[in-house]
């Protein structure tokens, strides 16, 4: 088995003067769920297109499943499934016909084709609606069908561009479970872009953050949280006067101070002790009922990264 499903070295792509992807180098181990995070227009979709061999890099190289994206793009597409920016479904066709077409494209035998289509539609809760024209479906149902299509031929690597966009919370959670179990069961690698950072945090083993075409970091969500963001402490109580808040703001370990609905929230630099701050508040005349300490979420770490590199 390959050690890395995806390897890029200085991967770059320009459109005229615009550098959509610049000098991206990363290694994504096989059998992981990789979350690719970044704001709109940061180069996520272009990177997927480069990895699928749909676009040629201006500079650098990409190896996907051991194949060079420039010279062996056909071999890459043979072994990958993709849900791109749009679901890409044929709206005049039924759900079953949509999957049957792609099953034919991937040369599944008629018996395997029928069994696999039924398995996926049943799993996605769409079997009863299999004969409906897809054009009449809700966005969430279309998205589920598109995910099923990407998994149809049991690819080694799946690219999913915002797969849970348009899905209700239950369907999103089901899809996340499906992806996790797929990786566990079949050793599939998933390359996932999403704006839903809690989602990335919950299912991704590895996360890459891209901004204006440049890769800022590739690391585990836990590592990015602990090193990239600020520690948050919440105090519930009374007596958070302007004078006390001013004292807090002057402390070197305090990055930010906010008061809302009787709750004081402090953002601290790094993993600094909270006890001195509690003492300071009590001495300042505050009545503290509860103190909650938490690490930064991936979302906070992501925002911090964005600000830091802006």
């Amino acid at each position: 088995m390959l050690e890395y499903a995806i390897q890029t070295d200085g991967l770059s792509r320009s459109f005229g003067a615009v550098r959509a992807v610049e000098d991206v180098s990363m290694r994504i181990p096989a059998g992981t769920i990789f979350g690719f995070l970044g704001p709109n227009g940061s180069g996520k979709t272009t990177t997927i297109r480069l990895l699928l061999g749909l676009l040629e890099p201006s500079r650098g190289s990409a190896t996907v499943l051991g194949f060079d994206s420039r010279r062996q793009a056909g071999d890459i597409r043979q072994r990958t499934g993709a849900l791109l920016e749009h679901p890409g479904l044929y709206e005049r066709l039924s759900a079953q016909e949509n999957l049957e077409f792609y099953a034919r494209v991937w040369n599944l035998t008629p018996a395997d084709r029928d069994a696999r289509v039924k398995e996926l539609l049943t799993h996605m809760g769409l079997w009863d609606r299999r004969a409906d024209q897809v054009g009449n479906w809700s966005r969430g149902m279309k998205q589920k069908l598109a995910v099923a299509r990407a998994m149809l031929h049991r690819p080694s690597l799946i690219f999913l561009d915002e797969p849970t966009s348009g899905l209700d919370p239950v369907a999103s959670a089901t899809l996340r479970d499906d992806l996790s179990s797929l990786v566990m069961r079949e050793g599939v690698t998933v390359f996932l872009t999403t704006h839903n950072l809690p989602e990335a945090e919950s299912i991704c083993n590895l996360v890459g953050v891209i901004r204006q075409g440049r890769l800022l970091t590739v690391d585990s969500p836990v590592h990015i949280r602990t090193h990239g963001g600020e520690q948050k402490v919440e105090f519930t109580g009374q007596g958070f006067t302007p004078a006390v808040l001013e004292v807090l703001r002057s402390r070197p370990e305090v990055a930010d101070v906010k008061v809302s609905n009787g709750t004081l929230t402090l953002a601290l630099h790094d993993d600094r002790p909270v006890a001195p701050l509690v003492r300071l508040l009590v001495e300042g005349g505050c009545d503290i009922e509860e103190v909650r300490k938490g690490a930064a979420s991936l979302e906070q770490a992501f925002l911090a990264l964005m600000e830091h590199d802006a």
């Binding site: 597409r77 043979q78 749009h86 890409g88 044929y90 494209v105 991937w106």
Partner: peptide, 14 residues
């Protein structure tokens, strides 16, 4: 127009 072309191009078809 119906955004199906890119998915088709991302398939194994030559």
């Amino acid at each position: 127009e119906r955004h199906t072309l890119e998915t088709l191009l991302a398939s194994r078809l030559a």
